[in-house]
């Protein structure tokens, strides 16, 4: 009977698509992306942070963000988390009596929350309209409200919970740290690093920042060392490169080395981030997720490109389906022939 043969053909065609889904790690595998060579970023050293929130206030000013009230008196800008109107926030780890700074037991510690500027950002991969883009040179993950459709897939995708949407507006935008890229042409670097009184937030090339972070990890806790503040100049920075940035170049001062966890957060997570972090308290306890070196964006795009790369697979399946359907579809006017083999 013809139906049986057609049934099997149908199985073949229909099964092809399903089978394709089972073999995600095939030819179109997309590796985790790496940071661009001239990537800019921040180094946040929680042991240097004094919790003054100068960076929070400066960030608000630099990005023209309004205050957010969470207390009944509506007097102070006191956001509980980053939001569509707060791109940078110092949060606090608290434990027990909170006696000692940077101690996990009965201590407290600060943690900066702002965009990590991933080497392979989930938000960029997720955005259907390229409103989130990673600058090929500086690696800054920027947002374009004119392109954005407000689907908030980036909000859902980010493992750090960074892109935030303005739910309080009919024309709400996504709000996130863009490393103050709008101030760069005026010679201003990230406002948070610019105002940080202790150099807990340091601006610079990620490569230099990573070297600085590793230098600190190699020192003995309690030892006095020179800590840079503001912007970390590259090792052999040319005067014309230095001239790009305003402000005093050398603001370094003597400070004591913290009792660090021996890990630079952001060195390898999700293929690395451009914002790096040092902490004396376990990073997970300080609210940073434990991420593998492989990014979700890589996994997601590998699946997508395996299935839809060059539309090869859909077209092949469509061809099969069309062929089968052409044999099986009988115009209704030929109804009388129905049931005849």
């Amino acid at each position: 009977m013809a139906t049986r043969r057609d049934f099997l053909k149908g199985c073949l065609a229909g099964g092809a698509a399903a089978a394709a889904a089972v073999v995600p790690e095939a030819a179109c595998a997309r590796d985790t992306l790496e940071r661009p060579a001239e990537a800019l970023g921040l180094l946040y050293d929680a042991t240097l942070c004094v919790g003054c929130q100068a960076c929070v206030a400066a960030c608000k000013r630099a990005n023209h963000n309004p205050a957010e009230f969470t207390t009944v008196d509506h007097l102070w800008d006191a956001p509980l988390d980053t939001s569509g109107h707060t791109f940078n926030l110092i949060k606090m780890y608290r434990h027990g009596t909170m006696e000692t700074k940077d101690a996990e037991e009965n201590g407290f510690a600060f943690m900066k929350t702002s965009c990590m500027h991933c080497a392979d950002p989930s938000c960029v991969s997720a955005c259907p309209v390229s409103a989130m883009r990673k600058d090929p040179e500086t690696g800054i993950v920027g947002y374009d409200p004119d392109a954005c459709i407000g689907c908030r897939y980036c909000v859902a995708a980010c493992p750090f919970g960074i892109p935030k949407y303005q739910y309080d507006s009919p024309t709400g935008q996504i709000g996130k740290c863009e490393l103050c890229r709008h101030r760069h042409q005026d010679g201003h670097y990230s406002a948070c690093a610019e105002v940080c009184p202790t150099g807990a937030t340091l601006f610079g090339r990620t490569d230099d920042l990573l070297a600085e972070a590793k230098r600190r990890l190699a020192l003995k806790p309690g030892e006095w060392t020179t800590m840079p503040r503001g912007r970390l100049p590259a090792k052999n920075e040319k005067p014309e490169d230095a001239a790009k940035w305003k402000g005093i170049v050398d603001q370094s001062y003597q400070a004591q080395v913290g009792n660090y966890q021996q890990h630079v957060y952001g060195e390898t997570e999700y293929g690395g981030t451009q914002v790096l972090k040092l902490s004396a308290v376990n990073f997970q306890k300080a609210g940073l997720p434990d991420l593998p070196p492989k990014s979700s964006a890589a996994t997601s795009e590998t699946i997508q490109h395996t299935l839809y790369g060059g539309l090869m697979m859909p077209i092949a399946v469509l061809a099969g389906l069309t062929w089968v359907a052409k044999r099986n579809v009988v115009p209704e006017d030929d109804d009388k022939k129905g049931g005849q083999p």
């Binding site: 259907p128 409200p145 392109a147 459709i149 407000g150 024309t171 935008q173 997508q304």
Partner: peptide, 24 residues
């Protein structure tokens, strides 16, 4: 959609991001 008036971007070559699952 928060910014629904931009919805057509998803089909617009300059904007569409084929890496995005949402686009597909």
């Amino acid at each position: 959609l928060g910014r629904w008036w931009n919805f057509w971007h998803i089909f617009w070559p300059g904007h569409a991001n084929p890496n995005s699952v949402m686009f597909e």
